[in-house]
Nucleic acid binder design. Structure first.
Length: 482
DNA sequence: GCTGCCGGGTT
DNA sequence: AACCCGGCAGC
């Protein structure tokens, strides 16, 4: 985006894009940002006019900003709403840094986030208002001082490594930070509206912030800035020239909520979650009710988690699980926490995060079951095609289960399909071939016939379409391994 | 002869 | 890579 782009925003034509999301007029900055987001991430617009970013982006936003829609939607306290940052103050002591983040983030997030409206910086810097139009349906002018405060906060932000939320996908990022940068530039490069570079005098402003005094804040600061001492100086440079390097580091921070209840170290990613946890587990209240007298607020505190470190630890446990690649797997107990009032030790199960649903289901002891293709009920992706559920039948023939003792489960959590090469399968077949082929490398090594019935036998020729793919191809059966 | 599946060919 | 099939070999 360039300044030109900011100035050239169409005022009316974009309604199809923006209408649902912004709902009303938005500062052009936000608009431009949002357009960028649309291009890069794709957007989902719900029938009711709400606008969502793609799932990935959504997730990212949640994680990054900890000001996500989730909290906005479900938390009764709205803890993370920037509109009521005092909550955090009360709970955790003053952490101006966090609040300022919230402010800045709300700007970055742009339209579609009603709870995070932020006075645009140009308001505080009237000289730039001629460049960037300001909507008229904003707050009364009586709040000008607040807006000035917000602008000040933004300036402070610009120096804070945590603010720039680094992260995002390499591409996406930058929409947010970019737009933010631009807005800041617009504010700060005052008289030089056409010049986006930061001159030496400006650097004094975004220079390194003084180290936080509070323990908590200091921790987060250290986490975010460790291992790059010269980072602060280069920070502004990266920032200006859109170098992605610093972003990554900032991306790694996430705000979590830790239960302070005695002997309980539960950590959840959302304030509502932790409140519910406290209500349900410690206060003995009905978890379903949203009633909250605020008492829970005193029993949890906010912590900032270095996602990089955390993900490293998780990656050791779950090498390349798709779920770990995403930002989600922070702490284990996010899904089943309320239902099972587990004590503090539950937190030690990070593995469950990699495949939470899998571990919630019945485990199967049969190798062939592990390799069995997903049953239809577990494939919500295509609910409308009920008539296509042909594969249900092949799972149900009684003959299969008769021959197979032990518990059966048709609940599958991984829909990889028949092509999936199960670990068990390789361990079954490989050792054999290895042993034989190692001794006699001739081509005569043939896998001995398995004792188990194969698809052909089970389903018969007439139901060949029910066979596993391997059987159909006259290959070693993948469904009924020995 | 039935069956599993290897090896190779085709798309 | 997915798919198909001739043919070998175990039962």
């Amino acid at each position: 985006m360039t300044s030109k782009r900011l100035l050239e925003q169409p005022r009316a034509g974009d309604s199809t894009h923006e209408g649902g999301c912004a709902g009303q007029r938005e500062p052009v900055i936000g608009k431009a940002l949002h357009e960028g987001a649309v291009r890069n991430f794709g957007k989902e617009i719900s029938p009711n006019g709400h606008c969502y970013t793609s799932a990935r982006e959504r997730h990212y936003i949640h994680k990054k900003f900890a000001c996500g829609r989730e909290e906005d939607e479900q938390s009764s306290g709205g803890v993370l709403k920037h509109s009521c940052p005092a909550h955090r103050l009360i709970l955790n002591g003053i952490r101006l840094q966090d609040q300022t983040h919230m402010e800045a983030l709300s700007l970055v997030r742009g339209p579609g986030e009603p709870g995070c409206r932020l006075p645009s910086p140009e308001t505080a810097h009237p000289h730039t208002s001629s460049i960037i139009p300001v909507p008229h349906d904003r707050r009364p002018s009586g709040h000008a001082d607040k807006e000035v405060m917000a602008a000040t906060v933004l300036t402070t932000l610009s120096t804070s490594p945590l603010v720039l939320n680094p992260s995002s996908s390499a591409s996406g990022v930058d929409l947010a930070s970019k737009g933010w940068k631009e807005s800041l530039s617009a504010s700060y490069s005052s008289s030089t509206s056409g010049n986006w570079s930061w001159d030496a005098s400006d650097q004094s402003v975004p220079s390194t912030p003084s180290p936080p005094l509070s323990n908590d804040a200091g921790k987060s600061f250290l986490l975010s800035s460790q291992s790059d001492d010269n980072n602060e100086e280069t920070e502004s440079t990266h920032f200006l020239f859109e170098d992605p390097i610093p972003r990554k580091r900032k991306n790694s921070m996430k705000v979590m909520f830790k239960c302070l209840w005695k002997n309980c170290e539960k950590v959840l990613s959302t304030s509502s979650g932790i409140q519910r946890h406290i209500r349900t587990v410690h206060l003995g209240r009905n978890g379903d009710s949203d009633y909250s007298d605020g008492e829970e607020d005193f029993y949890y505190s906010e912590i900032e988690v270095n996602m990089d470190t955390l993900s490293e630890g998780l990656s050791n446990l779950t090498p390349t699980s798709p779920t770990t690649s995403g930002p989600a797997p922070v702490f284990p107990i996010l899904t089943c926490d309320v239902s099972r009032s587990e004590p503090a030790h539950m937190i030690h199960t990070p593995l469950s995060q990699s495949a939470p649903s899998a571990l919630c289901h019945i485990r199967t002891d049969h190798a062939y079951q592990a390799t069995t293709p997903v049953s239809i009920p577990s494939m919500p992706s295509e609910p409308p095609h009920s008539e296509d559920r042909i594969s249900v039948s092949w799972q149900s023939p009684p003959v299969i289960y008769k021959a197979l003792p032990g518990p059966m489960t048709q609940i599958r959590t991984v829909s990889i399909g028949e092509k999936r090469q199960p670990v068990n399968h390789t361990t079954v077949s490989k050792p054999h071939s290895n042993n034989t082929s190692a001794s006699k490398p001739t081509t005569g090594t043939r896998k001995p016939r398995g004792e188990a019935k194969k698809c052909r036998k089970v389903y018969g020729m007439e139901k060949r379409d029910l066979w596993c793919t391997a059987c159909r191809w006259k290959k070693a059966c993948q469904r009924f391994t020995d």
